[in-house]
Amino acid sequence: MQNILRSVINIPASGYVGVFPLHKSMMSQFVAPVEASIRQKLTSQLQTTHLEIINESYMHNVPKNSETHFKVVVVSNKFADLPLIKRHRLVNDILKQELNSGVHALSIIAKTPDQWNSSEQTEPSPNCRGGFGK
């Protein structure tokens, strides 16, 4: 079941267009501006060696194709010698504008290239429990 869910999550390798492979019948391509902006900012400001931006909005009580709940996996040399909380603050700070304008949840995994094992699977965030939108 989890595997099926994971396949819904779109992780474009490059470019700004996300595709939901599960809905082939209505194969909708849409521009994801927030995701694009997150990608651009993290790539340029942290010189990431690995970056995943997972839109988890579909897990929550929001309209289809929303960009409200994200999980980011950020691997960068800039995290070296920084405690976890400072790494998170750095990412939060870079994405301040997004967090102030509609991004409601941001889950962060921040590692240095040494700490990053590419075989690691990113776990999905916990399920919504109805609090969003209140």
Binding site: A105, S107, S125, P126, N127, C128, R129, G130, G131, F132, K134
Partner: peptide, 15 residues
């Protein structure tokens, strides 16, 4: 948190 410990209203708070 969102909600109360007996009934969290967000997955992150529940965690």
């Amino acid at each position: 948190m969102k909600g109360v410990p007996e009934q969290p209203r967000c997955g992150f708070s529940n965690a």
